[in-house]
């Protein structure tokens, strides 16, 4: 199989990142970090070490404006500190073969699309000096990169995302249990997957994470073909994960397929809702930034 690599250019597309950087990712739960700043923290007041200035953006707290710099330059700058946040985020990227599907009208496969999205978020988090880790998994975790907030960490993440597909089925449940054990402090688990696995196991794994008081955001990556099933003529469907092949008249079973698929999505959404996890559907035919921006805007509006 062809090696799937996510180039730096694609993953950290400056335009995409610039748009996302104007929104701020805020952790749902109260972080344990000592650094005060953009994340609401119960440990506000602890002394921190100044790191740098950055431009003021609407929404920043007034008290963080460096008035001295304003007096000199007549511009608003925000003081940032070395450990303003100690948010730890883990990007969980499904690299099972089902993620390799790329619809005829899609520009990217699900894997590529997930990688771009994950990279953009990683970039964003790192710019906020949050710690970002990465776990590539299929049947189980294939590669694990512990969280780090070093700016250079992005390169490591992006390189890792280019890892070849595993050629196996995804075992999300097991992976989530594993991650729950590895994440000692409260953090955010961002799962990018098509979720073509056992839903009960998935939900059990998510519950485990929630139980450990981690926030879980589920990015459900789907191709438009999988949602609309647009095939018309008789077609031979061969499974990407070694399922039995099937020759069918698409018209004959479209209704049943769409019903089953819709039921599946509903189950996932319901499971997420019940445990307080965010569910975000990423359609590979829509622009990467649009969906992410929309989600982050909704989070921002909720004050998370």
């Amino acid at each position: 199989m062809e090696t799937k690599s996510v180039s730096t250019q694609t993953a950290a597309d400056p335009q995409t990142l610039a748009r996302i950087s104007k929104l701020e990712l805020r952790a749902r739960t109260v972080m344990e970090g000592l650094i005060s700043g953009m994340h609401r923290s119960p440990h506000r007041g602890s002394s921190v070490e100044f790191a740098q200035h950055r431009d003021y953006v609407p929404g920043d707290e007034i008290r963080h404006i460096d008035w001295k710099v304003y007096a000199r330059s007549d511009r608003f700058h925000i003081k940032q500190f070395e450990e303003e946040t100690n948010l730890k985020a883990i990007l969980l990227l499904d690299i099972s073969t089902s993620m390799e599907y790329k619809g005829q009208t899609s520009a990217l496969s699900k894997r590529e699309y997930a990688s771009v999205s994950a990279a953009a978020i990683a970039s964003l988090l790192l710019r906020q000096r949050d710690s970002v880790g990465l776990a590539l998994f299929s049947q189980n975790i294939q590669r694990y990169i512990p969280p780090s907030s070093a700016p250079s960490h992005l390169r490591i993440l992006l390189d890792a995302m280019g890892m070849e597909s595993s050629g196996t089925k995804s075992g999300i449940g097991e992976t989530l249990h594993d991650i729950a054990e590895r994440m000692k402090r409260r953090g955010i688990a961002l799962l990018f997957s098509d979720l073509f696995t056992d839903i009960d196991q998935l939900l059990r794994g998510m519950r485990h994470l929630k139980h450990k008081r981690h926030e879980v955001i589920l990015f459900h990556v789907l191709d438009a073909d999988e949602i609309t099933f647009p095939f018309k003529n008789a077609t031979r469907f061969e499974g990407l994960e070694d399922e039995e092949a099937l020759t069918i008249e698409p018209n004959a079973i479209r209704k049943q397929y769409l019903e089953a698929f819709s039921e599946f999505v509903k189950q996932v959404e319901k499971g997420c809702r019940e445990m307080g996890a965010d569910y975000v559907q990423l359609r590979t035919d829509l622009p990467v930034d649009t969906t992410l921006s929309k989600y982050l805007a909704s989070r921002s509006a909720q004050g998370k």
Partner: peptide, 22 residues
């Protein structure tokens, strides 16, 4: 049947499930 287009498909589970009924 012989010249059918082939699609490498990810959501096979749903197809198989629908097709089993029909």
């Amino acid at each position: 049947r012989r010249k059918l287009p082939v699609v490498k498909w990810a959501a096979m589970e749903f197809l198989l499930q629908s097709q089993r009924k029909q």
